[in-house]
């Protein structure tokens, strides 16, 4: 009981700490938001001008929304991913990782605390981005089912976090370049998951990877929810929900397990130390 209380307090400690960091680095938060908005806009303008580019008449509004969902997932994945990997990176630079690892808490508690913040942060960030980008385009949300969208996003978060935890091994072991490596992992996930195109457009050999990636189901699920008003219980959405549940259940324990192996390796080889 008291142990449960302890783990609860520790979970909150990570949540509070990460919130404090976001607050203290608010300038970067702003820069990051602007960067994501600019990115999202430049992609979405492709949709707006598709008719101009190809000379063929198409349903522009449909295309805009299609791309906009891609940009939103990209941002959301980035922020939740970063919520785990970037913090480890920061802890490595500051040297606080030794103190975090020395504390009497399980790695599960540590990661859950960080991840809960990452999800809340990611959701708020993405919604803000969508609202701002939305001002520049005519978005047709008449066929949107927001409940389904949120459910899909939250379910997807579980897997994103699992992947994020596993990827956090990179900054843990490679202080200088680990973060860049984690960007590559993120980009590859998005490439194979069909952010701005259907997965079918990818070469055949990529398809198995695409179907193994939770982002694929999140993106497809969001499109079904926001463009075709699919309710949660519709067969299509259910066909996205169960793979997400599955990857979610598997990926967090696997992520923590991989992180644990890396932690042990670091403690054996002395990789945690930066100075002193």
């Amino acid at each position: 009981m008291s142990s449960l209380m302890h783990q609860g307090r520790a979970t909150y400690a990570f949540f509070e700490r990460n919130w404090n960091l976001t607050r203290r680095y608010w300038g970067w938060e702003l820069v990051w938001l602007v960067y994501n908005i600019v990115n999202a806009m430049s992609v979405t303008y492709i949709g707006l001008s598709a008719q101009l580019i190809t000379g063929v008449k198409i349903n522009t509004n449909f295309f805009i929304l299609y791309l906009l969902i891609g940009t939103a997932v990209w941002s959301y994945l980035s922020v939740t991913f970063d919520g785990v990997t970037d913090i480890i990176n920061m802890e490595r630079w500051e040297g606080t990782i030794e103190y975090t690892f020395m504390a009497p808490i399980s790695r599960f508690t540590h990661m859950i605390g960080s991840c809960m913040y990452a999800v809340v942060h990611g959701l708020l960030f993405t919604i803000l981005q969508l609202l701002i980008v939305g001002v520049f385009f005519h978005i047709d949300l008449s066929h949107a089912n927001f409940v389904t969208a949120i459910v899909i996003l939250l379910l997807g978060s579980i897997s994103f976090i699992g992947f994020g935890i596993a990827t956090a091994v990179l900054p843990l072991l490679y202080t200088e370049k680990g973060m860049q490596m984690s960007f590559i992992v993120r980009a590859v996930i998005l490439l194979v998951s069909g952010v701005y195109y259907p997965v079918e457009a990818l070469p055949q050999w990529m398809h198995p990877i695409a179907y193994a990636s939770p982002a694929t189901y999140v993106i497809e699920g969001l499109r079904a929810a926001l463009m075709r008003n699919q309710p949660i219980w519709s067969p299509e959405i259910l066909s996205y929900i169960w793979p997400l549940l599955l990857t979610g259940i598997i990926s967090i324990p696997v992520g923590i397990y991989i992180f644990g192996i890396a932690e042990r390796y670091a403690k054996k080889t002395g990789k945690l130390k930066r100075n002193g």
């Binding site: 008291s2 209380m5 302890h6 307090r9 520790a10 909150y12 400690a13 509070e16 700490r17 404090n20 960091l21 203290r24 680095y25 920061m90 500051e94 606080t96 103190y99 975090t100 504390a103 009497p104 808490i105």
Partner: peptide, 19 residues
């Protein structure tokens, strides 16, 4: 420490980890 955080923010984090 997290250099951007204050002593209080850093220490309260540490304290909570120790229950």
């Amino acid at each position: 420490f997290f250099k951007k955080l204050s002593p209080m923010e850093n220490l309260i984090y540490a304290a909570r980890l120790y229950n």
